[in-house]
């Protein structure tokens, strides 16, 4: 368990370090993810060394979004005042992204 935590948090910490050193506008977590995949690929670490922890984190990822979602209550006024633009723009745009990405990928794949 400790080794699992060390690997995950180690990658995240290195991500933080990269961001701090270079100032690139990419979140440390994304860098950490790429780093973890790279370490696994280079056989520097084994999948079994992180599997338990990573399975736990991935299968509960949705739950971690609850607190930032509750922040919605701070913007009920803004959302009420600009309800139509916000809802129409996000819904239509999200549907478009789904369709365009899916079609392009499905079409090019074959």
């Amino acid at each position: 368990m400790i080794r699992q935590c060390f690997i995950i948090f180690g990658c995240l910490a290195l991500g933080e370090l990269v961001v701090w050193l270079t100032g690139i506008p990419i979140p440390s977590s994304i860098i950490g993810m790429l780093l973890l995949a790279a370490l696994l690929q280079m056989k520097a670490i084994k999948v079994e060394w992180v599997k338990g922890m990573s399975d736990f984190l991935i299968s509960n990822m949705g739950f971690f979004f609850v607190p930032p979602g509750v922040a919605l209550m701070l913007y009920l006024d803004v959302i009420k005042a600009e309800f139509v633009p916000i809802v129409v723009a996000t819904v239509v745009s999200t549907v478009l992204v789904l369709i365009v990405t899916g079609w392009t990928h499905q079409g090019l794949k074959d």
């Binding site: 995950i8 995240l12 977590s29 993810m33 690929q41 599997k51 922890m53 971690f64 607190p67």
Partner: peptide, 22 residues
Amino acid sequence: AGGYIEFWLKPAIVALGVPLYQ
């Protein structure tokens, strides 16, 4: 209080490196 939960978001994104590698 929620910060303790939200905190795990970053490690969870790092963990996605495993299926990515596979």
